[in-house]
C-alpha cells in the first residue's frame, strides 16, 4: 500500500485525528493527534492488511532553541514530538507515526504536555513511555505506572529537554 493510500485511508477512518503527513522524508511519517494515537495504533495493529504488530520504539524529541538568533533560522516553532516506530513481523514493513505536542501544557511552564498512552495496545510501550516521560517530560494519559525509569525517582527535571540544566546538587553529590 503506498503512503498516499494509507494516509487517505486513515484520514477517512479517523478524520481529524490524522493531522498531517510527510511522505517525502527518508522515513515517511504520519502525524496523529495526541488524543487519537491509541486508536490509530490499535487499528494499525489489527488491520488484516497492515498488521503493524511490533512497536519498535517511542522517542521524544524536543524542538527548542534558547538562542533567539538560531531560533529564528530553525524553521520551526518550539514544540515537542513523540515518534512511534512501528513494524510488522508478517509483512516486513514499517511505519512512523508522530504526535506533535506543545512544550508545556497550555504554555504553563512545568505542566507536562499530555498524550494518550498506547500501553494498552502494545505492552512494550509501558517502559518506552516511562522512558520518554522520564527523559523528555511527556505525560502519557492512561499509562498504568508512569514513573521515572532510568533516573532516580526524586530526580528533578527532564534531561533530554533542550533547556534542561543539571541540578547543582543531588543528595550531597555535586552536579555541575
Amino acid at each position: 500500500m503506498s503512503g498516499q493510500n494509507l494516509v487517505e485511508r486513515l484520514s477517512k477512518r479517523f478524520g481529524g485525528k490524522i493531522t498531517g503527513s510527510n511522505l517525502d522524508a527518508i522515513d515517511p511519517w504520519i502525524e496523529v493527534a495526541p488524543g487519537g494515537i491509541a486508536e490509530v495504533c490499535e487499528y494499525l495493529r489489527d488491520d488484516a492488511e497492515l498488521r503493524l504488530n511490533l512497536l519498535n520504539c517511542i522517542s521524544g524529541v524536543d524542538y527548542f532553541e534558547a538562542d533567539p538568533k538560531k531560533a529564528a533560522k530553525a524553521g520551526w516553532e518550539p514544540h515537542m514530538e513523540v515518534v512511534y516506530h512501528l513494524s510488522s513481523t508478517f509483512n516486513k514493513h514499517t511505519l512512523v507515526l508522530k504526535v506533535m505536542l506543545p512544550r508545556w501544557k497550555d504554555d504553563v511552564e512545568g505542566e507536562l504536555p499530555e498524550v494518550q498512552s498506547v500501553a494498552g495496545v502494545f505492552s512494550t510501550a509501558n517502559w518506552h513511555e516511562r522512558e520518554v516521560f522520564d527523559l523528555c517530560g511527556v505525560r502519557f494519559m492512561g499509562h498504568p505506572n508512569l514513573r521515572r525509569i532510568l533516573c532516580p525517582e526524586d530526580w528533578v527535571g527532564y534531561p533530554l529537554r533542550k533547556d534542561y540544566e543539571m541540578p547543582l546538587e543531588y543528595h550531597g553529590i555535586r552536579g555541575r
Partner: peptide, 21 residues
C-alpha cells in the same frame, strides 16, 4: 532530516534514531 534504522544485533534489534538540524 531524520532517520531510523534497526539492525539485528546479537541480543535483538538495535535501533538508532537520528534527527539532524
Amino acid at each position: 532530516g531524520e532517520v531510523y534504522l534497526e539492525t539485528e544485533a546479537p541480543r535483538g534489534q538495535m535501533g538508532f534514531y537520528l534527527v539532524s538540524d
